[in-house]
Nucleic acid binder design. Structure first.
Length: 835
RNA sequence: GCCGAAGUGGCGGAAUAGGCAGACGCGCACGACUCAAAAUCGUGUUCCCAACGGGAAUGAGGGUUCGAUUCCCUCCUUCGGCACCA
């Protein structure tokens, strides 16, 4: 029977206290060791830790611990992304100040996190909502402003006219888009807001050289930025020579076929150019386009609609007068908000032209056909061929490549530049980063507006601009900063006269774009980070988090780093060298976990019942980390049993009761010991590799397998007479367990009488010689089917293996006296005979 | 529609470099222990014919190969992203 009862509560709290007291996980600069900065995305302090947090934090924790045992000086910090809408919305409901609620939640979550037994260095904790943090968020805003990267622009937000406030996307409900709070239909409202010129870095952001990031993330970012090469072409308005309209096109080689132009209904020029007789129809269409938002967008029937403005433009390549229409299939937010329409070679333009009986002029024809005939076209032609009806450029070859790789596009680009009509141009779907939020609970934008001197940054010595605490919560959700009687009143940094503060706060992605820098020195007050810490720890070596941040946070943080690099604040082109994403833990029903569905798994309950080590082991074991899976409450029993059986293996000592009679001969036990040692080192090799590759589930299964072997080996006498092999097995086993299940590993390490702490041990080295098999067993296939197997000495030659296999009775039976057609010994792993 | 990821037992999943499919675990079945149960330990557990033995099987179909979960082509399903992008 087990001498000592496995009491997870006692063991876990004992070691957690000791590790904390000993500062075992404190990460300090140590130039004698290589550093490893392991970063995992910081949580929003929602109130309670859920199992998803464990899934995102524990496997990276085990890997950080592994790296530490491999000899690296590891920093694994944790903090809170503490600004944001939920706390503000809650405040509007119950009046509890977001500051109070947020910091209460943080305390609660920190306490819960400590039960994980993770190696977080809490002395490096950073909280984005604390003034010592957001002082520097504000400072960074000013640095970007000084770099010329911040600017103001009118931009539409979703606005509730009843609540008099901006709504976030999740606050707009239903197909009719009404306010979540009062049900009023939401309108678009143009507000003057702050932007960062992220698009200035678009090309650089498409370059992933030197970083080890998942292909999936790189593809998502590439598609998000969506670079397209083409040309900008100038068109004149026929009735008004001074008005120029620039269009972007990816097909400048079809310019001669542009038979009309289409403006987005919101285009500012529409009002100017519309002729009086078309005014009513245009206004009507504009109003209708403004009303239809998501609803119409999602409509399956994509019937093109539009109206004629009465105005004409001049096609600069052939001076043709072409009508200007407006249509909602042209977006103000993409390109220049106006297109040249080439119905012969664009499907949308074709459909539009057919509907409104606009001319179709083909300017590319397939090489094989003698003539292009507009009347016979029943679809736009987008294939390759040659240019026709295009003046001097007739006969130029056209292929389906984009940009200059296409000879026709290259020819037209040169021609346009030469004539001064247009120029080569690149367009992106990616937009500048909208920073302004009409909210209270965020970092204030440190800008002051003076009637004379306009916008100026708050001087450094006045940072941070702190959020006022005496604020009023209107049930409407209007920003309390606007309503505060005095807060916005200040003086102009230039002239000292009365001026007003910006009352908008920053997007929280701003806070999370640099938190990896704040961890370096969270309480440092002479700058955003301590240079010495920066020089030692940066860049981040391993960054882990959910795939859902692929296009927002991860792109913002890369942009931010590059902007800081150009400001001379940081070095290197990328902030995070390696990125890995975990999947999602779903509810037991296979749905996303949510309070409303009632399928949320609370880790507290599991820790209490089974202990942190068992939960940690199961978190690693139950799914592929990069995939995620639905939670299975029953499955945890397997991990619990593993932990208990390990405990029993170490603390129970049936070796004493195994009499020598059961150990038949010394040579036989020697064999058992040798086999045990082989298994130990094979497992070590596998576990080491799996840690390196983020394959956490097979680490646990390998350890389970080895434990099963150890039970058998001990039964066969491997542990008798204090054998060196058995001692080594125990020691290596605990070292391999230590990253995954730190508490029980530490307890059993001390039980064996080893010096504290198992977490300060070196990761063991694989004895390659010990992993070699004495003999190998090979399956023998006949015509692709396994019919028998042979065992040969490990050093047997291919010829010997063939000979042994062919001598088999089974093989002879199949051969029926004939010669085999082919005999293959594949990698000394299998014999394949073809008869 | 476009881009991406994934389809393996009842379930989660495993399978260096193209070489024994189903490691490890859950669940289930049977057995031991027990007055009994739980716990624990042991045995079995892809499916079909089932006795030996044989056959089929990694979403479907095809191809390359002595040999394919793995490589190639076509298709289906699920999930994620983008979507009138000029």
């Amino acid at each position: 029977m087990t001498d000592i009862y496995y009491n997870h509560k006692e063991i876990e709290s004992k070691w957690q206290k000791k590790w904390e007291a000993d500062k075992l996980y404190r990460a300090v600069i140590d130039n004698s060791k290589p550093k490893h900065y392991a970063l995992t995305m910081l949580p929003y302090p929602s109130g309670d830790l859920h199992i998803g947090h464990w899934f995102s934090m524990i496997p990276p924790d085990t890997r950080a611990r592994f790296m530490r045992m491999k000899g690296y000086n590891v920093m694994f910090p944790m903090g809170f992304d503490a600004f944001g809408l939920p706390a503000e919305n809650a405040a509007i409901k119950d009046g509890i100040h977001p500051m109070k609620r947020t910091f209460q939640n943080i305390d609660r979550m920190r306490t819960q996190m400590k039960t994980m037994g993770a190696m977080f260095d809490w002395e490096r904790e950073a909280i984005s909502a604390s003034p010592e943090y957001y002082k520097w968020t504000e400072w960074f805003f000013i640095q970007l402003y000084k770099q010329g990267l911040a600017y103001r622009k009118m931009s539409a937000v979703d606005w509730c006219p009843n609540c008099n406030t901006t709504l976030a996307r999740e606050q707009v409900w239903g197909d009719d888009r009404h306010c979540e709070r009062c049900g009023t239909p939401v309108i678009k409202k143009d507000l003057d807001q702050w932007f960062f010129k992220a698009t200035q870095y678009a090309d650089e952001l498409l370059n992933f050289d030197g970083i080890d990031w998942p292909e999936r993330v790189k593809t998502l970012q590439t598609n998000w930025i969506d670079r397209s090469e083409g040309a900008e072409v100038k068109f004149q308005i026929a009735s008004n020579q001074s008005e120029l309209i620039i269009v972007f096109t990816t097909r400048p080689d079809t310019l001669w076929g542009a038979t009309f132009m289409v403006f987005s209904p919101e285009h500012p020029l529409v009002e100017k150019i519309t002729t009086p007789e078309n005014k009513a129809a245009v206004e009507e269409y504009k109003a209708q386009a403004a009303r239809q938002t998501e609803i119409q967008r999602r409509a399956v029937d994509k019937e093109k609609t539009g109206v004629f403005t009465g105005a004409y433009a001049v096609n600069p390549v052939n001076q043709a007068r072409i009508p200007i229409w407006i249509a909602d299939y042209v977006m103000m937010s993409y390109g220049t908000g106006a297109i040249m329409a080439v119905p012969a070679h664009d499907e949308r333009d074709f459909a539009f032209a057919k509907k409104y009986k606009l001319p179709i002029v083909p300017v590319i024809k397939p090489e094989v056909e003698s003539d292009a005939n507009a009347a016979e076209m029943n679809a736009a032609f987008v294939g390759s061929g040659v240019m026709v009806n295009s003046g001097l450029l007739n006969g130029t070859k056209v292929n389906t490549e984009k940009g200059r790789k296409n000879p026709s596009i290259a020819a037209v680009l040169d021609w346009l530049t030469q004539k001064g009509i247009g120029k080569e141009s690149v367009n992106y779907r990616y937009r500048d980063w909208l920073i302004s939020r009409q909210r209270y609970w965020g970092a204030p934008i440190p800008m002051v507006n003076c009637e004379i001197h306009g916008w100026n940054p708050v001087p450094d010595d006045q940072l941070p601009v702190t959020l006022p605490e005496d604020v009023e919560w209107r049930p409407t959700g209007e920003s309390p900063l606007k309503l505060h009687p005095t807060w916005k009143n200040t003086t102009c940094p230039v002239c000292g006269e009365a001026a007003v503060r910006e009352t908008d706060t920053m997007d929280t992605f701003m806070c999370s774009s640099w938190y990896h820098l704040r961890y370096l020195s969270p309480h440092y007050d002479k700058g955003p980070f301590d240079e010495a810490e920066y020089n030692y720890w940066m860049p981040v070596d391993t960054y882990t988090g959910g795939i859902e941040h692929a296009t927002m946070h991860l792109l913002y943080t890369r942009f931010f780093h590059k902007a800081l690099r150009d400001a001379g604040i940081v070095e290197g082109h990328e902030p995070m060298l390696q990125l890995r994403n975990q999947g999602m833990v779903l509810g037991e029903d296979g749905d996303k976990m949510s309070k409303s569905k009632g399928n949320v798994i609370a880790p507290d309950v599991l820790v209490n019942k089974y202990g942190a080590d068992s939960v940690r082991a199961y978190i690693m074991f139950f799914a592929r980390w990069e995939m995620g899976a639905p939670w299975d409450s029953q499955g945890i029993e397997g991990s619990v049993r593993w932990i208990r059986r390990v405990w029993t293996l170490f603390t129970d000592s049936p070796t004493d009761s195994v009499t020598d009679s059961r150990i038949e001969t010394d040579s036989k036990t020697d064999e058992v010991k040798k086999n045990l040692r082989r298994k130990v080192h094979q497992t070590l090799r596998k576990v080491t590799r799996d840690f390196e590759n983020f394959e956490f589930n097979t680490i646990i299964s390998s350890l389970m397998e080895l434990m099963n072997e150890m039970y058998k080996a001990r039964e066969a006498g491997a542990a008798a007479r204090a054998s060196a092999e058995w001692s080594e097995a125990l020691e290596i086993y605990l070292k391999m367990m230590a990253p995954a299940t730190p508490h029980i590993a530490e307890e059993l390490w001390s039980y064996l009488g080893k010096p504290y702490s198992v977490h300060q041990q070196q990761w063991p080295t694989v004895d390659e010689a010990a992993t070699k098999e004495d003999s190998i067993e090979l399956p023998v296939q006949i015509n692709g089917k396994v019919r028998d197997r042979i065992t040969v000495p490990a050093e047997a030659t291919e010829e010997e293996i063939k000979f042994t296999a062919l001598a088999l009775e089974t093989v002879q039976k199949f051969l029926e006296g004939k010669e085999p057609k082919k005999v293959i010994v594949a990698n000394r792993r299998l014999v394949s005979i073809v008869v």
